[in-house]
């Protein structure tokens, strides 16, 4: 499997692997419906629309999208919409689920329940991938959406989920940095102690094929002991790890959405044991949404293939 190095790579692959069935939860907003329309036209997905029939029809009409031929399931209660969609993913009816106008917390709740039923041992975490100019691979921040203050146990599961995603993306031995606000003052941070403990476990092979690097800050990652200079000649981009474990939700969410400000591209998803769930932010625009859907399609495809091999 070739390594996926750019978010743009997903578009080409999604066209090859699609269309895949995607259960779409409450597509009631124009931007989001537009993304579904484009993803369908590009051959990525065959949507199944779940939610308030009237609102879905209105949104479709506004973006000039003929939804007559798609399966529609009428449901108004948010938690019921979410439960129904995630159940379809876990029963194998659809390989992908995508969230529209439902708060993400409902989706997380549904996934947690289904993972428990499936006895998968998998926790729910959000992986936010970044494409950064000058860095020749994708990098991911995680968990950027679920755990408010992950403890050691949660961080282990977050690492395992991210490694799972990177293996699917073709990275055989992803490098991981466990980030911390550790610096020369303020004593030893809890996030730094987590790094130390997690590194020992990674070195023992407890997280499978991956490596935790001995760096917890971007200064260590980018400068590797050198000094920053005005011409930035000491900033190196060839040693950036693939997975960045953030200390807490505030850190993860605040940094990963810097794509609204900096010259980076972002795409987020939840990888469940049964398939990807696209969970765009309420402020994401439709072109970004299409990219997130293409990523879901490719990951779903890779998961299906992996399952076939395992059988």
């Amino acid at each position: 499997m070739t390594m996926i190095r750019k978010l743009g790579d997903f578009a080409k692959l999604a066209r090859e692997k699609g269309p895949k069935k995607m259960v779409v939860l409450a597509p009631e907003d124009n931007d989001f419906m537009m993304a579904i329309k484009k993803s369908h036209e590009l051959g990525y997905i065959e949507p199944i629309l779940v939610g308030d029939k009237k609102r879905i029809a209105e949104a479709a009409q506004k973006v000039d999208f003929n939804i007559g031929s798609f399966r529609k399931i009428s449901e108004e209660d948010k938690q019921s919409i979410s439960d129904l969609g995630i159940r379809m993913l876990f029963s194998g009816e659809t390989p992908i689920a995508g969230k529209g106008q439902i708060p993400t917390s409902y989706i997380y709740r549904s996934i947690i329940r289904e993972e428990a039923k499936a006895n998968s041992g998998m926790t729910v975490s959000v992986v936010s991938l970044w494409e950064v100019p000058g860095i020749d691979h994708l990098i991911a921040f995680t968990d950027t959406g679920v755990s408010i203050k992950p403890n050691m146990k949660a961080k282990k599961e977050i690492i395992q989920n991210a490694v799972f995603v990177f293996h699917l993306l073709g990275y055989t031995r992803p490098k991981i940095a466990v980030l911390s606000g550790q610096r020369e003052v303020g004593g030893t941070m809890a996030s730094y102690r987590d790094y130390e403990a997690l590194k020992i476990e990674a070195d023992e092979g407890k997280f499978g094929d991956c490596e935790i690097i001995p760096a917890t800050s971007f200064t260590e990652i980018f400068l590797a002991g050198k000094k920053r200079t005005g011409d930035e000649k000491n900033v190196r981009k060839d040693c950036v790890p693939h997975i960045l474990i953030v200390p807490c939700l505030d850190t993860g969410n605040i940094i990963c959405k810097l794509d609204f400000f900096l010259n980076v591209k972002r795409s987020s998803l939840v990888a469940t044991s049964r398939g990807p769930v696209c969970i765009p932010s309420r402020s994401d625009k439709s072109h970004n949404l299409v990219e997130q859907i293409s990523m879901g399609v490719v990951l779903a495809d890779h998961m299906e293939r992996k399952k076939k091999v395992q059988k």
């Binding site: 911390s180 606000g181 800050s217 200390p247 807490c248 850190t251 605040i254 940094i255």
Partner: peptide
């Protein structure tokens, strides 16, 4: 807090 502040 500082984890966020320093890394941000």
């Amino acid at each position: 807090e500082i984890d966020t502040g320093y890394l941000f």
